[in-house]
Amino acid sequence: MRKNIVYLIVILILSFTGCNSRTDKAHELKKMAVVISTLNNPWFVVLGESAVERAKELGYEATIFDSQNNTSKEAEHFENLIAAGYDAILFNPTDSEGSVSNVKRAKQANLPTFCMDREINSLDVATSQITSDNFSGCVALGEYFVRKLNKKGKYVELLGLVGDNNTWNRSKGFHSVVDYFPELEMVAQQSADFDRSKAMEVLESVMQSNPDIDAVFCGNDAMAMGAYQALIAAGKADSVMVFGFDGAKDVMDAIKDKKIVATAMQSPRQMAFTAAEMADEFLKGKRDFSKKTPLQVKVVTQENIDEFGAYGSDN
């Protein structure tokens, strides 16, 4: 009899605890994780913070995670997010190939992932991929480059991370224009990993063997600023044209000050907002998403700079 009473009490306690935890879960805010490749670049900081801002506006708890450009670190984040019961991931991958397995793991755990800015080499694992139309942006930038150089001259190309599809979409878009003008000669094409300091070092080294260049085309704005610093140090800032890509604040200011010739504006805010809104729609039951949603990239020049704000914000 005494044993039965003990069992009854245990069952009652357990069922109350269960009820409480269910009630807590119902009242808990749903959670979105924002996983960013690196927070060591202001452009990605804006991307991450905008995603958190929009997710919060939509009524979610949102936390930002920094992968420090390291796929293993990113894998750790994914494992933790799955274990912690997150409801959606707004994801900026570190590597188009290496990040696929992380998104796959999330999908197996029924956790939807929305890629931002960088794509992954799989159509089956992410719910949707929201990326800049890098190729078309660089086609337009390439046309402007050709006209600014009057179809002739020597130039250097600084590439981003070689494992990132964006690097090649930008480079190929640019070359799909510039290569048709035979008097435009590329004297060097080297990677500076989207990094400002590395871009400065690479250009300084390239200019030792090619002192007579007319322009530098950079795969992002951080490298454009690094290239510009190298040109200042070499006393060539006024004679060599620098072109970037991103629409970062320092480059937008440099275009206004006529230090940098042009950039291509991709809006991290619009991308992050779109990803958060898609995740919200998913969590409310929508399942029919386009696998890829490219965002238009616009060329920003010294002539039209006043129409744009940094990072695609309203001016």
Partner: peptide, 19 residues
């Protein structure tokens, strides 16, 4: 349709070849 292309560069290459 861009959704049919795993690597967006394949999709972009169509434009390059048409041009």
């Amino acid at each position: 349709n861009i959704d049919d292309y795993q690597n967006t560069m394949d999709f972009n290459s169509i434009s390059v070849e048409l041009n």
